[in-house]
Every structure is written in C-alpha cells, then in structure tokens.
Design a protein around this nucleic acid. Structure first.
Lengths: 209, 209
DNA sequence: GTCTATACAAGGATAGAC
DNA sequence: GTCTATCCTTGTATAGAC
C-alpha cells in the first residue's frame, strides 16, 4: 500500500475517533512512522487530506444516487437510498462533520463549492419528491414538497452531528434505524395508500418498528 | 464599563462575525487595546469566554421557558416561545455554534454537562407537547409525541448551523420567519381544529404566510 | 520521486514584574 | 488590576539526503 493511501486511511480513522480539529499533523505522521515533512510532501496542507477524503465520500454518494435514478422510483427505493447515504455519512463522519466546521469557519473563501453543491442537492431532492408524487407514492401540494425538501435537507445534513454531540449510543445499525424511523414517519404523513405499502415493505426488510 | 464586560461584548461580536475558531486571543486584545496577558487575567482560557457567554445565552432561554410555563399552554404561545429562542440563538450564534464545535471535539471530558442539559431539554419538550395534547391543541399518539420531540430536538439545534453553512440570506427577521414556517407546518400536521386556529393566530401576528 | 531534519509563524497559556 | 516576556504546541515550508 502506497504511503499516500496509508495517510488517507489513517487520517480518516483518527478523524472519526477524535474529531478533525483534535488530530494534528504530527500525530498522523507518528501513527504511520513517517516524518511530518513526509506528510507535507504528500499533502501540503491538512485541509488537503480532508478534501481528498471528502471527494471519496461524494463519489460514494453519487453512486447511490445514480443507482436510485436508474431504477423505478418508489418510497421503498428512496428509503433504501437514504439508508445507504446514512451509512456513508457514518463511515466518513470525521471528515463530514469536520468539513462543516471548516466551511462554517471560512465563511467566505472557497465557500462557493459547498453552497453550489448544497443547492444542487436540494434540487435533486425536489425532483425525487416530485417524481414520487407523480408515481402516486406521495400526495403533496407545492408547499408540501417545499416542506419535505426543507426537512430532508436539514435532517439529512445534521442527524450525524446530533449522534456525536449527544453520544448516547454507538451501535451504528441501531443509530441508523432510529433515524430511518423518523424519516419514515415524516414521509408516511404524505404517503398515499400505495406509498404506505411501499414504506411498509422497506420497514419489514430492515426490521424497523 | 468594566474591562471584563467589554471583553465579553467584543468577543461575542467577533465570534458572530468570524466564527469562534477564527478569532484569536491576540485579536480580541488588540480590538480592546489591552494586552493579551490582561485578557488572560480576566479569562484564563479562551474557552472561559465561551462558557460565560454560553451561560448568558442559557439564562436568556430559561427566562423564555419560564414565561411560557407560567402562562396557559397553546400552540400560539409555544410558537411565540420558539420565536424568542430562535432570536436568542441568532444573537449568540457565534458561541452557540462554537460550543457545538468544542463539545464535538472534546467528545468525553466536560461532555457530561452538555448531554445532561440536552436530555433535560428533551424532557421539557415532551412535557410541553403532552400538555398541548391534554389541552386539545394537538392530537398525537405516544409515537407521534416521540416524533415531535425528535424533530424539535434536531431542528431547534441545527437550523442556525444551516443558515451559516449555506449563507444564502442574512436578514435575521426573514430567516427566522422561514424556519418558523417550517415548524408551523410540522405542528399543523398534528393540530386539532382548536390547534389550527391557534397556529393561525400566531401566523397573523407574525406575518407568516 | 520519496523521505528526514529542521526552521518558522501563529495561537494559547502562564509566571512574575509593576 | 494590568502588562511583559516567555513557553509550548500546531500548521506549514523547505533544504537537502537517498
């Protein structure tokens, strides 16, 4: 395994464990038995490591979205998509959360990418919900869709922060089932008969009460 | 005005503007024309400033909660409570978000306070919703209340982060109206006839569509 | 191309003079 | 109560060995 890849692996591990802000360059180097300068050679800034891991995370998610869009829309499939995304966010929690804080701190430079990305994400969700209405899984007016988009945006972005802020549970499966249950409940308020059946199907497959 | 108070004022201003992590001790001192050592005399750690401002923030909110609990429960009053809390969170955004950052990083020491506080907050919300059901403003089963508590917990904690992460708007009134609208919509899904009327009353008073 | 050693800047923290 | 001097840690940059 190349040093570069080892750096990325170890960094993610440390970020997940201790939080991005609490992991120093020297610590990563020490873990890998290389010199801090060597780390500098591969990634000139600490933020570069974050960015590379973040790209990995984004590629991961893009795949999940693509799979969803290639299939026939349904609430079952949508909840499956979100389940995959949640696991991905969990796996990359250190960089995902770290990035939000970096973005928040910077607050102006380089921000453009993040904001643009976020707005594309919103449009994507709007499309998904609109399709689900068209396919008779959801029954929602324009303002209902607005609400769902706002909800999924905030909920999907911050559930993982809540987990690590409150630290009341650390079984990944259990945690994600909890948040899927909330999402399920929210969607069921807009679900048609067909929609409710589709949600039920997902629940049974995934052992969600 | 005592130096100590000037430090708190200026720090909040700077934290709000640039983010807690981007404001240095030397910068605060420079702004006040005092020496970094003098700052250290008043607050030995940077985190101490954060903690003091945070207590101010908490006292603020406790007041709002007390006022609510002294009155007769209603959805109108509850939305009024949340409006006050939102403005308070906005005013202290730098320390509120900064604290989440610190809590996340620490992830073990001093965490107890935060977790305990958060769990008390949840119980409080559960009580509020239960009362609103008892007073015929909401119609919700046990699991419906669970949902509402989960929702308000995540939503109420992170809406302000979303605002400063996306940076698409910076008119405080407008922003808070937006989030109140979402909250209103969520509550209206559980509202009785009496509840909907109470929500309407709040909307009219506060110019929310 | 890959790495070590080393230096430098900036920020937080502290001891002690006045 | 105020301030200076100083220390330690962390991010970052680079000269030069292999």
């Amino acid at each position: 395994m190349k040093t570069r890849d080892k750096i990325l692996d170890t960094s993610l591990e440390l970020f997940n464990e201790k939080g991005y802000g609490n992991v120093g360059n020297r610590e990563i180097a020490r873990y890998l038995n290389i010199s801090p300068g060597n780390l500098s050679y591969h990634f000139s800034k600490k933020e570069d490591i974050l960015i590379h891991l973040l790209n990995e995370f984004r590629d991961n998610n893009s795949n999940y979205y693509n799979v969803y869009h290639q299939g026939v829309p349904s609430l079952d499939a949508f909840l499956g998509l979100m389940k995959n995304i949640f696991h991905s966010q969990y796996k990359f929690r250190g960089v995902y959360i770290g990035n939000q804080f970096v973005q928040m701190d910077v607050a102006s430079s380089g921000q453009f990418d993040y904001v643009q990305n976020a707005s594309a994400r919103l449009e994507n969700f709007r499309q998904i919900f609109t399709d689900l209405v068209a396919h008779d899984y959801l029954k929602a007016s324009e303002s209902g869709i607005d609400f769902l988009v706002s909800f999924i945006s905030l909920f999907g972005r911050f559930w993982i922060q809540e987990v690590f802020l409150l630290q009341t549970e650390n079984d990944e499966e259990k945690i994600i089932r909890h948040y899927l249950k909330i999402l399920k409940k929210q969607l069921s308020m807009f679900a048609t008969k067909k929609g409710k059946k589709s949600i039920k199907k997902f629940s049974l497959k995934n052992f969600i009460a």
